[in-house]
Amino acid sequence: MASSMRVRALLKGDVTAITAIVSHPMETGMRKDGGKVIPAHFIQVLTVDVDGKRVVTSHLNTAVSSNPVFNFKVKGAKVGDKAVVSWVDNLGEKGSGEAVVAAG
């Protein structure tokens, strides 16, 4: 497993495309390894803040793949704004990554 997260934010016209690639197993709790159930382990809430303001709150479940890729389109951001993507999973683990909005 990779151990990290990558965030990109590119402004084109008046729309900023924010991409977040998150390293996470997204275990459903349904899979087995040698007869033993692998415990559920998945991101429950993922948020995006631009320039300190919450612009996305998404509630996720086990129907999302491991190492998921998220694409959001946001209006109103400007070059130089900070985009922060954060997540919390069902085990209480947290992660976040950030990018400065760049001209795309």
């Binding site: 631009v50 303001k53 999302v64 793949s65 190492n67 959001f72 389109k73 209006k75 109103g76």
Partner: peptide
């Protein structure tokens, strides 16, 4: 301010 941030979100799931 918040109201002016129009958001369209697409969550891409890589599961088939």
């Amino acid at each position: 301010m918040k109201g002016r941030l129009l958001i369209s979100a697409a969550v891409v799931s890589l599961g088939m």
